[in-house]
Design a protein around this nucleic acid. Structure first.
Lengths: 225, 225
DNA sequence: ACAAAAGTGTTTTCTATACACCCATGG
DNA sequence: CCATGGGTGTATAGAAAACACTTTTGT
């Protein structure tokens, strides 16, 4: 049996949300193959680091971003997915809050950039497939796990949450019913703070209570939209 | 940057179902490390084969079993999960029909054996964790994808399906409501065949219509129990 | 005729959906 | 005072859950 020459990489599809738009963080490759093409950030795993640590390191190196939520997506192992040879990649989905969104859009914009998921450039490797898988995962998962909150500021007005769901699910939602459903899940704390968006009545701020969520989850109560 | 010395393996948690019991296929290891301990079948990925092909090859080599359904589960990459060095393993879940169940229990029983998931031996590596993850996936997935049928004979009496669900979900189900729900999903064909289980009224046989299922799925109709 | 498993409907309860007006603020 | 977005309740329809007796076969 010949020695394995498979190399292992990680890739991270990082989503951000702002102003009713879902974006993905992409980098422009500096080297061959696919030099100057857009790609999902990622790179080779080091011998001693965990896969998650590897993702975080690569994101730090390539984009400087700090992610707020990370989960493994899928492992892509098609033998011909990388022209350099056999590279198997463990893909992750990352979510960041809007403040990160702003920072990263400003710095070093030539090499790191947010792209609206409905307006993507051509992508290197099989990254189009990875990204499509990630979008599907995100869309599915917000309906049965409270990960939408990870894309919003810690304190957010209800309308932000609603807009996030309409955007991701691609359909309009009845405001009253949506609010009733979320409130009945009992995982939001209503704060004594209001925020104004320039015009209109100021909105009450809410905060996701992760502790209470895990408590309820343990008791078998499931989050479902 | 030092050359990567990560090796990549696949592992397969293969489930079978018979007589109200869910079992997992385990092998007794022939070599160190964990010699003579029970483990999930698996092995190193070859340079040119896909991950799925690798799983199928390993299962063939180690157990002779032919699986009926295969899906990727999760990739386990803890740096210390294998005492031989850095081995990252892509785990899969496989399902087999009862006839496979019988065959494999008979042949070479010293090295390959079915274990009831409620009565497992100590396992090598991090295979306990992998198996637990697989069980959770199976339990969750039968409620929103029609994979239960992959564990039954192609033609099956309704009671078999019902018992499978009660076993996997760990709770009793109202026979009438369950039947109504499944029938209303419109993915079963009722055959003009009956089967008797020794005593009692013979049962009509049903068959899962995969083609119709995919058609309905395309139309946006979702399978849900 | 009886034991054992299969098959079948109706009622009640809960959940999801549809729907429109008033409120608080800034300009 | 008007424009803008925030906040709220009720009625209807549909889905889920509870519930028990009859049918068919083997012994």
């Amino acid at each position: 049996m010949s020695r394995q020459t498979i190399r292992l990489s990680v890739d991270a599809v990082v989503f951000g949300y702002e102003d009713g738009k879902i974006s993905v963080l992409l980098i422009k490759r500096k080297f061959q193959p696919f030099k100057n093409e857009w790609a999902i950030p990622g790179g080779f795993v080091k011998n001693t680091e965990s896969l998650e640590a590897s993702v975080e390191r690569e994101l730090q190196e390539e984009t400087g971003i700090k992610i707020n939520y990370l989960e493994q997506l899928y492992t892509f192992g098609n033998p011909s997915r990388d022209p350099r040879g056999r590279v198997v990649s463990v893909a992750y989905v990352g979510l960041v809050r809007p403040n990160m969104f702003k920072i990263s859009a400003a710095t070093d914009a030539k090499q790191v950039q947010w792209f609206n998921i409905n307006d993507l450039p051509k992508l290197a490797f099989d990254h189009k497939e990875i990204l499509a898988t990630a979008v599907k995962r995100l869309q599915a998962k917000i309906t049965y796990e409270p990960i939408g909150f990870e894309l919003l500021d810690k304190k957010f007005p209800f309308s932000d949450l609603e807009k996030l769901y309409t955007t991701l699910l691609g359909r309009s939602i009845d405001r009253r019913n949506f609010r009733k459903k979320i409130i009945s899940l009992n995982v939001l704390d209503e704060l004594d703070e209001k925020v104004s968006k320039g015009s209109g009545r100021p909105a009450n701020l809410f905060q996701f209570n992760k502790k209470r969520y895990f408590q309820l989850k343990k008791e078998g109560i499931i989050f479902e939209i």
